[in-house]
């Protein structure tokens, strides 16, 4: 009976089902790996879904050169230890122009490095099915996102032309140049992810755990000074505070939270009592109301 399966068991089984379906019906699948906790869970589920076969697709990391150093180290270690085929893409135009959040602003930085970078990588490798770790509970517009989300040949998302999804049946048929973003974690919540990380002992980037880190205040967010590219105000000196992250992105654009939760049980306890939502630390989401919906329409992951 279903009653013997816990909600984590059911979520896991559903995600595995989605991963298998997406891979079986794809010519060139890829797993979008952003190094965060959701990506770690997604990768773990992919290993489970195809066991004893290896994960039958490469990992793609769309790098912005502004990620935390610990993230990059974790990424390379994970790929090496698990013997994964890792593809790293950096938008060559951004590299040439030196796009950064200080001179160009968070919106342009994110669009050029991430949105355009992802489009370039998908086109270059002709990936037709891209798995991502997005969850419906992250943001209001994601609540209506399909598990199999269709993108036009121009990578656009049209909320009015998405296909109805019934039962566990996914219509995966696409035309030339079109693609599908598949979200196996659609029905997971942030707390589910952390409980699963604990249950399965899944390695995550140490930045999720509290430690003394050098911080400065920027527009109400606590920004960790990860390297000497951080623009400091005249006379400004980073102070050391015990902080951790709930979500990880480009370090100048990701706010830390004050915390002493240095272990997984402490993080989960803090989460269970939390009163702010996960993406509150993302500077880019708050540009304008409805901004995630707009970014998605343009092809943002």
């Amino acid at each position: 009976m279903t009653g013997t399966l816990t909600h984590l068991d059911r979520l896991e089984a559903e995600s595995i089902d989605i991963l298998r379906e997406g891979v079986a019906e794809s010519e060139r699948p890829v797993l979008l790996y952003s190094i965060g906790k959701d990506s770690s869970v997604l990768l773990h589920l992919a290993r489970k879904a195809f066991h004893p076969s290896p994960v039958p697709m490469p990992l793609l990391h769309v790098d912005t050169t502004w990620k935390f150093r610990e993230m990059i180290a974790f990424r390379d270690r994970t790929a090496a230890e698990l013997g994964l085929d890792l593809v790293v893409h950096r938008n060559p135009e951004c590299v040439a122009l030196g796009i950064n959040p200080f001179d160009h602003g968070s919106a342009a930085h994110t669009d050029l490095w991430k949105t355009q970078g992802l489009r370039q990588a998908l086109d270059e490798h002709r990936f037709d099915v891209a798995f991502g770790g997005a969850r419906r509970d992250e943001e209001r517009s994601r609540a209506k996102e399909r598990v199999f989300s269709f993108r036009t040949a121009q990578h656009r998302w049209d909320p009015r032309s998405q296909r109805p999804e019934l039962w566990r049946l996914y219509n995966t048929r696409i035309g030339p140049g079109e693609g599908i973003r598949v979200f196996p974690l659609s029905n997971w919540t942030e707390l589910d992810v952390w409980r699963y990380v604990e249950r399965e002992s899944i390695p995550v980037v140490p930045l999720y755990f509290a430690a003394p880190r050098p911080v400065v205040d920027r527009d109400g967010a606590l920004i960790v000074v990860d390297d000497d590219r951080m623009r400091l105000e005249p006379g400004e000196r980073p102070r050391v505070e015990s902080v951790r992250f709930r979500t990880l992105g480009c370090y100048p654009l990701t706010g830390a939270v004050r915390s002493t939760a240095a272990t997984l049980p402490e993080v989960i306890a803090e989460m269970a009592a939390a009163t702010s939502s996960e993406r509150a630390g993302r500077v880019i989401d708050h540009d304008r109301s409805g901004s995630m919906e707009r970014k998605k329409a343009e092809g943002y992951f």
Binding site: R136, A143, K144, P159, Q162, S186, N187, T189, L191
Partner: peptide, 8 residues
Amino acid sequence: DVAYRHFG
């Protein structure tokens, strides 16, 4: 459209 919400 159909929206999916989570609570517990």
